[in-house]
Design a binder for these strands. Structure first.
Length: 447
RNA sequence: GUGGCUGUAGCUCAAUCGGUUAGAGCAUCAGAUUGUGGAUCUGAGGGUUGGGGGUUCAAGUCCCCUCAGCCACCCCA
């Protein structure tokens, strides 16, 4: 016998996991579409040269790649942003700019699996290509906020539990500006990477790491750290940042754009405390050039960011001479799902249909088929139990799968042209004429 | 990819110093004289103790390798 097993970091999805997963996908689709983003898809495999050298050395190392049967070097997509850059460069003339798309698909990363970190997982990306205007930055913040709010309503809404989250905003121009002032512009990648760990390892370790990785002096490290350590309200932080980068155009522009994002988000209906300026948040991906976003769950920050993104103004430059700036973010669907599970926000439902038609009288199959079809015709999912087992067993099945309603009709009811509509949660039952079954069900489902 | 911890039934766990045929609860399935569920009772299935090798008269228990999970690093959704 072959041991049935799955690779490390790769998982099966049982119905109780897949039902909330599909619900999450549907929520993301709805939100993205409501902002005018269009769906696209791209291949899981690309020529290796398309994918490598876009994120960082580390991402190249984590990429799954191999030679195909024809000897071509191919890679499995590591994210959805790099394939998007290729896609837009290839189809720019057909798409027209600006182009807004969403893309919900699986990506693969060959890193060690952990809680909330998998080797195969789904990302839900949305991006706006072809504009540098801050309106796109603002809209990105709005979409992230709307997305997480909608997910909160869809998942904890009825149980009374709230899905708390906070969005951290930064702009890399602020850091680049300061680094330029300090004569460290060339060293920005290692410096940003060290800085990103500030919350985790503390100021002294970061300073040590910067000195080792980028050769910064104590004074330079100190300047960079003093920027990252600023605290207070968004306005207070920005005032201080402004002083530190004063005199550098890039830095001043970064501060200006951060202010515009905050103001725009407020105008767009985002509560003031939902967005937090965090100057130390830099993100490891090298391709970000401007605004940067990260989203953390208030009750489970340790699982990491569940929705991150930012502005990249020259990602497509490797594929085309046309200037294609972009901005967007990605919802980590599987990580979020792991978090929701851990927070107890996922109800144990193993059926996608709310109604079970009991196969009660073995000679009445046509009547049951007719009833089930009438319910479906009304837009409500209905399953007919596949064999005439004892009624008690069928009800037990309905309970365990999480059905909301059972339809029971025996000889007596069918002769009278009626059917019992049983609310499984309240254990109450009403006998109604066959014609009004859908209405009776709809009433229970709505209540 | 590096390091640490862990691995016994589908799940949660027992099993004395290495000592006979590896147990229990939950879950699953089947019943409890055939028109109403989450309870209870009875019974059944399910394990080469993650896999492989070694030490020993004897290994779930000790050693090595390997696979998987968790944690840290790295990185990130």
């Amino acid at each position: 016998m072959i041991d049935p097993r799955t690779l490390s970091g790769f998982r099966d999805y049982l119905p109780e996991a897949m039902i909330p997963r599909e619900r999450l996908i549907a929520t993301a689709q709805r939100v993205y579409r409501s902002f005018g983003f269009s769906p696209i898809d791209t291949p899981a495999l690309e020529y290796l040269e398309i994918l490598t050298g876009k994120g960082s050395e580390e991402t190249d190392r984590q990429m799954y790649h191999f030679a195909d049967q024809g000897g071509r070097m191919v890679g499995m997509r590591f994210d959805l942003t790099v394939p998007l850059a290729r896609f837009v460069a290839q189809h720019a003339s057909e798409l027209g700019l600006p182009f807004k798309r969403y893309h919900i698909a699986t990506v693969w990363r060959g890193e060690r699996a952990q809680r909330g970190r998998y080797r195969e997982f789904m990302q839900c990306d949305f991006d706006t290509i072809g504009t540098k205007h801050v309106a796109a930055d603002i809209e990105t913040a709005l979409v992230i906020h709307e997305l997480l709010s909608a997910i909160g309503k869809s998942f904890g809404g009825e149980s009374g539990k709230k899905l708390g989250f906070s969005i951290r905003v930064n702009n890399r121009m602020v850091l680049s500006g300061l680094l330029a002032k300090l004569g460290l512009a060339e060293k920005s990648v290692p410096i940003l990477r060290s800085l990103d760990k500030l919350g985790k390892i503390g100021r002294e370790k970061v300073a040590e790491e910067m000195a080792a990785a980028a050769g910064t002096t104590a004074e330079q490290s100190n300047q960079v750290l003093s920027l990252a350590e600023l605290s207070g309200t968004n306005d207070e932080v920005l005032l201080q940042v402004e002083k530190l980068v004063a005199g550098n155009l890039t830095g001043e522009e970064g501060v200006h754009r951060l202010r515009e994002i905050l103001a725009g988000a407020t105008a767009g209906g985002v509560p003031a405390d939902a967005l937090q300026v965090d100057v130390s948040s830099a993100r490891g991906l090298d391709y970000y050039t401007g605004a940067v976003f990260e989203t953390f769950l208030t009750d489970l920050p340790t699982i990491g960011s569940i929705c991150s993104g930012g502005r990249y103004d020259n990602l497509a430059s490797l594929f085309t001479k046309q200037e294609l700036p972009g901005i967007g973010a990605s919802l980590g669907l599987d990580r979020l799902l792991a978090a929701l599970e851990e927070l107890g926000l996922i109800e144990n439902v193993r059926t996608p249909a709310p109604v079970l038609v009991v196969y009660f009288d073995k000679d009445q199959l046509p009547a049951y088929l007719k009833i089930a079809q009438a319910v479906r015709a009304a837009g409500i999912g209905a399953e007919l139990f596949p064999e005439p087992k004892k009624i008690g067993q069928q009800l037990q099945y309905a309970d365990r799968r999480g059905f909301r309603i059972a339809l029971i009709a025996g000889e007596r009811e069918l002769a009278a042209g009626t059917c019992q509509v049983k609310d499984l949660a309240s254990k109450t039952s009403a006998e109604v004429p066959l014609a009004v079954i859908p209405a009776a069900i709809a009433k229970i489902l709505a209540g």
